[in-house]
């Protein structure tokens, strides 16, 4: 794994990759790292989703990469432009953990599981199969997706490296 170009995806950000490039996002907590991959065209996409729904947005214009319901359509759009086909796309996701547990927790602090649910709903809408996931728990993750193999590598402090 040398000299592959690494494309960084920030928080509330999304990006695409092709030609063997890798996509990487770091420090996912309650955020969800959603990845899409077209195995025929070797086109990959990654979104670092922070919130479940843009319906609560109080910003204008909104950052589409931030919300599950807007990030996934945008990511698909960009991948189509690179030659991907929606019917071939495969999804993987990681993150959506709950970093801290507090008694009497309000809904806004249960954001991780809600992000996961919302991403699942969007995938369902586009009939994109979820191949594998590593979500939940109470720890952070860093993920890297290869646009060559579609392999998603997940790194965490407590559980080391895992490939899904």
């Amino acid at each position: 794994m040398i000299s592959e170009l690494l494309i960084k995806v920030g928080m509330a950000d999304l990006n695409t990759a092709a030609n063997g490039e890798h996509l990487k996002t770091t420090g996912l907590g309650s955020c969800v790292g959603l990845t899409l991959f077209d195995p025929t065209k070797h086109v990959a996409g990654m979104a670092h989703v922070m919130l479940p729904s843009s319906s609560i947005a109080r910003e204008a214009p909104i950052n589409v990469a931030k919300y599950a319901d807007t990030a996934i359509p945008e990511l698909i759009e960009r991948m189509l432009a690179l030659g991907a086909n929606v019917s071939r796309l495969q999804a993987k996701m990681a993150g959506g953990s709950q970093m801290f547990t507090l008694p009497g927790q309000t809904d806004s602090l249960r954001i991780g599981p809600r992000n996961v649910e919302s991403c699942l709903m969007m995938l369902e809408q586009y009939s994109i199969p979820l191949i594998s996931q590593d979500t939940g728990g109470n720890f952070g993750r860093t993920i890297e997706l290869s646009s060559k193999s579609g392999m998603l590598t997940i790194r965490s402090v407590q559980h080391g490296i895992k490939e899904i």
Partner: peptide, 15 residues
Amino acid sequence: AHDMAGAILSYGLMQ
């Protein structure tokens, strides 16, 4: 928590 700073701090940015 004993974890990555990004994962931890993002928890406090949700609002």
